[in-house]
Simulated scan of single mutants.
Amino acid sequence: MIRDKARSFREQAVHYFEGLSYRERTMLHKTRALILILFVTFGLALAGCSDAGGGGDAADRPSPEATSQAPSAGTEDDVTVLVPGAPGDDASTAAPGEVEVAEPPAPNDADLEFLAMMVPHHAQAVEMAELADRYATSRPVRALADRIRAAQGPEIVLMSSLLEEAGAQAHGDHEGHDMDEMEGMEGMEGMEGMDGMDGMDMSGMPGMLTTPQLDALAKARGRAFDRMFLQRMIQHHEGALTMAGAVAVDGVDVRVAELAADITLGQTAEIDRMRELLG
Results as ranks from 00 to 15, higher is better:
Asp146Val: 15
Asp146Thr: 15
Ile148Lys: 15
Gly153Thr: 12
Gly153Arg: 06
Pro154Ile: 00
Glu155Asn: 02
Ile156Ser: 06
Ile156His: 03
Val157Glu: 06
Leu158Thr: 07
Ser160Ala: 15
Ala170Asn: 09
Ala170Met: 09
Glu175Pro: 14
Gly176Tyr: 02
Met179His: 13
Glu181Tyr: 03
Met182Glu: 07
Glu183Lys: 15
Gly184Trp: 06
Glu186Val: 03
Glu189Lys: 12
Glu192Ile: 14
Met194Trp: 13
Met194Ile: 15
Met197Arg: 15
Gly199His: 14
Ser203Ala: 14
Met205Cys: 04
Met205Gln: 10
Pro206Arg: 02
Leu209Ala: 05
Thr210Asn: 10
Thr211Lys: 12
Leu214Lys: 09
Asp215Thr: 13
Leu217Gln: 09
Ala220Arg: 11
Arg221Gln: 08
Arg221Trp: 00
Arg223Thr: 13
Arg223Asp: 11
Ala224Gly: 13
Ala224Cys: 04
Asp226Arg: 03
Arg227Gln: 12
Arg227Val: 11
Arg232Trp: 11
Met233Ile: 10
Gly239Trp: 05
Ala240His: 00
Leu241Lys: 03
Met243Gly: 01
Met243Lys: 01
Ala244Trp: 01
Ala244Ser: 11
Gly245Cys: 01
Gly245Tyr: 00
Gly245Ser: 01
Val247Thr: 00
Ala248Ser: 08
Val249Ser: 08
Asp250Ala: 10
Gly251Ile: 01
Val252Tyr: 00
Asp253Glu: 13
Val254Asp: 11
Val254Tyr: 06
Glu258Asn: 10
Glu258Pro: 00
Leu259His: 02
Ala261Asp: 09
Asp262Ile: 04
Asp262Pro: 01
Ile263Gln: 01
Thr264Phe: 05
Leu265Cys: 06
Thr268Val: 03
Ala269Ser: 13
Ala269Tyr: 05
Asp272Phe: 04
Arg273Val: 03
